[in-house]
């Protein structure tokens, strides 16, 4: 559009007015607090004395770098993210492909699959916490009955099992999101493409890898990025399911513990800032490597 005409000018002026309130709110609740968090990370502020503190430079970051618990939290978060998102993607693909078939009662099936997504994370953590109960949990009961384990396991407390438990719950809770996005992409594919492949006698598996997957790849990448970013900031699940134990503590749990439980705003802010930088870095990398433009089509989720 040219920039001179009355119409274009009026529209741009209206756009500025229309955007202003929204941007003001975002500046207040997002930009300003983020800037304050970064600022606090260079101070020794505590929860009790938020307005009397001393600038300590990068001291907090030095401690952070030396704290094995922090690095453990980083590792936990990355492992959790990679494993859960991978499993969710594969499972989501399988379920979406199954639901994409023409079958009676598909609407009902889709609704059933959506249930875990609608359930609050806290609630799903509690539900699974009960199912994973070491003495009365249905999971142990079933595995014992099937002869897969010899004795009941403490899923949420056992250092070797707690991360598995956390991942299992997340996969259960987040796969519907993947399924929905993939299903939406699948349903946009032209049907005659498949009819052509059938006429040509191409094996369905080959069709999937050569036709379906490349075509839904943009939507799949968007879903993966959304899920990855979500997984990197995971908090509720660990907090409720396994508490503060070292084996499952995520970066968010670690940072909140320092901020609120230990009231160390300076140090906790450093951890929070580090988390923010990690997330930002991963976002930029994935978007660049995946050549995905969230502004383009398929980003409507």
């Amino acid at each position: 559009m040219a920039h001179g005409s009355a119409l274009a000018r009026e529209r741009r002026r209206a756009a500025a007015l229309f955007l202003a309130p929204m941007l003001a709110v975002l500046a207040l609740v997002a930009v300003w607090p983020l800037a304050r968090t970064v600022y606090f990370s260079f101070t020794d502020a505590t929860l009790g004395s938020l307005d009397s503190y001393v600038i300590v430079g990068v001291e907090n970051y030095r401690w952070l770098a030396e704290d094995p618990d922090w690095w453990r939290a980083v590792r936990n978060t990355v492992v959790f993210t990679v494993v859960s998102v991978t499993l969710e993607t594969m499972l989501g693909l399988v379920i979406a492909l199954a639901l994409n078939a023409r079958l009676p009662g598909r609407g009902l099936l889709r609704a059933a699959v959506l249930i875990p997504w609608a359930i609050p994370t806290v609630v799903s953590a509690q539900m699974w916490g009960w199912m994973f109960h070491d003495l009365y949990g249905v999971v142990n009961e079933a595995l014992l009955a099937a002869g897969l384990i010899a004795a009941p396991k403490a899923w949420t407390a056992d250092p070797d099992l707690s991360m598995t438990a956390v991942v299992l719950v997340d996969v259960w809770k987040a796969t519907p999101f993947m399924t929905l996005l993939i299903l939406a992409a699948l349903q946009m594919l032209p049907r005659d493409l498949y009819e052509a492949a059938r006429v040509d006698g191409i094996h369905p598996v080959r069709v999937f890898f050569r036709v379906t997957l490349p075509l839904i790849r943009p939507a799949l990448m968007v879903a993966v990025i959304f899920r990855t970013l979500d997984a990197l900031r995971v908090f509720d699940l660990m907090y409720v399911l396994t508490g503060n134990i070292r084996e499952t503590m995520s970066m968010s749990v670690y940072a909140r513990r320092q901020l609120i439980d230990f009231q160390d705003i300076g140090y906790g802010s450093a951890a929070a800032t580090a988390l923010f930088l990690v997330v930002a870095l991963i976002t930029v990398t994935t978007i660049t490597l995946g050549r995905v433009r969230p502004g383009g089509k398929g980003g409507s989720g």
Partner: peptide
């Protein structure tokens, strides 16, 4: 997509 923890102290 902000990690909520990143704004916690500022908020």
């Amino acid at each position: 997509m902000f990690p909520q923890v990143a704004v916690l102290s500022g908020l």
